[in-house]
């Protein structure tokens, strides 16, 4: 396989890691453009909320984990990322409620 594991970026999707994660969840599936879509159980939420994770994992162990809640009147989301960038450290967090880029914090 292409030596994508030398920490070099960008790296292709790590299908195996995503399939393994998928096997940990009851309600998940792989989408066409490859990412793991995890529907969270509404039983844990007050009121009408549908919540999901969208997870991408790469062969250099970079990742993007997006969390999103659809509430009655608005969307509430945040995101954990690991990838090279000019705005923060490689590991960083985009805070809720909008997963804002400008307010991202190093992790």
């Amino acid at each position: 396989m292409v030596p994508a594991d030398d920490g070099a970026s960008p790296a292709p999707i790590d299908r195996l890691v995503m399939e393994w994660m998928r096997s940990r969840f009851a309600g998940s599936r792989m989408r066409g453009r490859l990412y793991l879509h995890v529907e969270l159980s509404g039983d844990y939420y007050l009121g009408e909320v549908s919540a999901r994770f969208e997870i991408c994992w790469y062969r250099n162990d970079d990742f993007a984990v997006h969390y999103q809640e659809e509430r009655q009147d608005r969307t509430w989301k945040c995101q954990w990322d690991r990838h090279p960038n000019a705005h923060n450290s490689r590991d960083h967090f985009h805070p809720a409620p909008t997963a804002s880029r400008t307010d991202a914090a190093d992790a």
């Binding site: 960008p10 292709p12 999707i13 490859l34 991408c56 090279p84 960038n85």
Partner: peptide
């Protein structure tokens, strides 16, 4: 852009 480039690599 990073997402784009990773998809390209994929």
């Amino acid at each position: 852009i990073y997402v784009d480039l990773s998809e390209w690599a994929t």
